[in-house]
Amino acid sequence: MTTRTTGLPRSYLFTWAALVGLLAATMALAYVPMPGPLNLVLALGISAVKALLVLALFMKLFRAPALTRAAAAAGLFWLAVLFALSATDYLTRKVEPAGDLSAPTGREYQQGDR
């Protein structure tokens, strides 16, 4: 790692600049009308790149012991499990019409919460 007299590694400065650049990009792109979910995909893609930069350069994840990387991977893997297996229900559930939402719900009789 190259250090100058200020003691600031250049790589940190570049990382910061890249993060700010990506922030500007994601903000600008959000205002561009795009078909379908492309806005969302781009926004999350840029977020993922930003997160990777922080993980890789600020948190030094990829130079960390394998065990550390495994802990990080475990968090992400189980998050993916939560989303993926919930999706088996939500993507295939037959949505019934919601019905009359102005109908009585029973809450009219409710006492104050304790």
Binding site: W78, V81, L85, T88, D89, T92, R93, K94
Partner: peptide, 21 residues
Amino acid sequence: FFVWAHHMFVAGISLYAGLVF
């Protein structure tokens, strides 16, 4: 971690999800 929705078979989840779980 992959089996949780077997508590919900009759709760209104989709049949496909029921099969998977």
